[in-house]
């Protein structure tokens, strides 16, 4: 990965020097162990700050719409910047979605595809370690050795620490890119089976409803899921509107449910299953068990996987006259 990191630094510096990019979005080191922080490099000299390691977990596409947003305070808008983004599979898929939804001008975006080994989630590691805080982590091959506050070292197989979304991810390379660094994984097999979703799907309607309510009753309506989602770029979320008021006061659970059902359904045919919402949730609400249904149905009903093909119209804003009618109630 060091090698990739060097190339990222070099590429970023070059893009900035040659004015092929005004901003490079990537990761820099964090002060916390097992973390990397998104960073914005605008100066070739700063490219050194860029890192590439197993903790580059965030979906960087979240920052793209902001780069191209109009400035409401000026009349004469500056020409849109050229933005380069270091893209794992998920960042790349989200970027494709944003391009399709006109939030990012394709010609102003440089997608630098990098190979993603599947990122490690510090929260998962902490859970496995217990209460003693992690102070450092060392990787060698597929083994990760974590040292905690007490000085104890624990060995993990890399797979155990994989972020949830990375476990199920079958396409770890950005599907659309302008440059590539290193050898991109071909994708295909997920790193781990998706048991939780399958188990949930097999439950009875009532059990599913109970679990759904149980999960959502943890929600404190902090909106972190929404803030973390690259698709939630709306200027004013439906849930924040008052005429009409779609989600009530937020007091009763039904209001919480209506917010989440509404927000999740807005991801139908758009969600790239990056896991940002789940990671962002401070209460550990298992949103993916519900959102993944939409990903799966888009594929099954319309043969559509979000984030792959810039040309293809998202499934809910087009139609086919032969689309399925199998959900229609026939009275007789």
């Amino acid at each position: 990965m060091k090698d990739i990191q060097e190339q990222i630094i070099k590429t970023a510096a070059q893009l900035l020097t040659e004015a092929k990019a005004d901003i490079v979005i990537g990761f820099s080191d964090s002060s916390l162990p097992m973390r990397a922080t998104p960073c914005f490099i605008t100066n070739a000299d700063d490219a050194q700050q860029l890192v590439w390691n197993s903790y580059c977990l965030n979906n960087l596409a979240i920052y793209l719409p902001e780069c191209f947003a109009l400035d409401p305070h000026v009349k004469e808008q500056k020409p849109p910047p050229k933005v380069a983004v270091i893209a794992k599979g998920c960042d790349g898929r989200s970027a494709v979605g944003l391009i399709k939804e006109l939030q990012v001008p394709r010609e102003n975006l440089v997608i630098i595809a990098v190979p993603c080994p599947g990122m490690l989630d510090a929260t998962i590691a902490q859970r496995l370690i217990g209460t003693s805080e992690i102070v450092s982590a060392e990787e060698s091959g597929d083994t990760v050795i974590i040292k905690d506050q007490t000085g104890k070292e624990t060995k993990f197989d890399r797979k155990e620490l994989l972020a949830e979304a990375c476990r199920f991810c079958t396409h770890r390379a950005a599907p659309v890119s302008d440059m590539t660094i290193g050898e991109l994984p071909k994708g295909g097999e997920a790193l781990a089976p998706d048991e939780r979703f399958e188990e949930f799907s097999k439950k009875s309607t009532e059990e599913r409803w109970d679990q759904f309510c149980r999960e959502l009753s943890k929600c404190i309506l902090c909106n972190a899921c929404r803030s973390a989602c690259p698709n939630c770029y709306c200027k004013v979320c439906f849930a924040d509107q008052t005429r009409p008021n779609w989600t009530g006061t937020g007091g009763p659970l039904r209001d919480v449910i209506s917010f989440h059902l509404g927000r999740m359904f807005h991801q139908a045919g758009r969600c790239v299953d990056c896991g940002a919402c789940v990671r962002a949730c401070p209460m550990g609400v298992d949103l993916r068990t519900f959102t993944y249904k939409l990903v799966k149905d888009a594929k099954e009903l319309f043969d559509y996987t979000a984030g792959f093909d810039i040309e293809r119209v998202p499934p809910l804003i087009e139609f086919n006259v032969d689309d399925s009618d199998n959900f229609i109630t026939e009275p007789e």
Partner: peptide, 26 residues
């Protein structure tokens, strides 16, 4: 036609989270 796609996905989604299929019909 456009509505049909939305409705189909919505119905299956609501069923998935445990809302009886009879509750919302198209």
């Amino acid at each position: 036609y456009v509505a049909r796609r939305k409705f189909n996905m919505l119905k299956k989604f609501l069923e998935h989270v445990g809302i009886c299929p009879e509750r919302v019909q198209f």
